[in-house]
Amino acid sequence: MAWTNIEMADEVIKFFKPYSSVNLGIGMPTVIAERIPSDLNIMIHSENGVMGVSGRPKKENVSPTLINAGKETIAVKAGASFFDSSLSFGMIRGGHIDYCVLGGMEVDAKRNLANWMVPGKKVTGMGGAMDLVNGSKQVIIMMNHFSKDGVAKLLPLCKLPFTGLDVVDLVVTEMGIFKPNGKAFEIIKLADGVEKEDLKIDPSALF
C-alpha cells in the first residue's frame, strides 16, 4: 500500500537529527511541521524571515504578519527569531541549515531537480528553491511518485528546466525512499506491498 502524505512526512522526519534546523518548502512538505515530535527540538526555518515555526496558530492567536513562505498563518515556539530576507538566505546559502525538504516536478539519477516551470505552459517561479538546493547541507525531495499521466517523476535525466544540478540527496514518494547516486536511484525503502516493478522507473536509472 502506498503511503499517505502523513506517512511520507513521518518517513522524512526519521532522517532528522535532534536539535537540527529544517527548511520546509511550499505544498506537500508543510505537513512535516505538524508531525515533528517536540522532543526532537528541531528549529523550523521559513525563508520569509523566521526560525522556530511550531505549526498552526490557535484561532485567537492568528497574526496577519506571522506567516510562512507559503503565506499561511503560523505559530512560533520559544527560541524563535525574526529577521530580514537577506539574513534568512544567508542562513541557507551559508550552509547553516541542516535539511531542506522541497516538492518536485522531476528528479533524476544524476541528483538534478526540476521544480519551477513548464516552458510555455506554467510558470510559478523558483522562489527560494534554487538557493535552498545549493545551500542546505542535505536536500530531501518529497513528491508524488507519478505525474498526472502515470509516468514516474524519477528519471534518468530531467526533461524540465533544472532548479539545481547535482544537489538531491534523497527522494521520498508514496512508493518509497530513493537515493540518487549519480548513475541510478538506490532503493532505500519501499512502502509495504510495493514491488520494484510498481515503481515504473526506467531500468537504466534503477540500481
Binding site: G55, R56, P57, K59, T65, I67, G70, T73, I74
Partner: peptide, 11 residues
Amino acid sequence: KNEIEFLVTEN
C-alpha cells in the same frame, strides 16, 4: 487591511 492570504489554524 493587513490581509491574510491563507488562514490556517490549529482546529
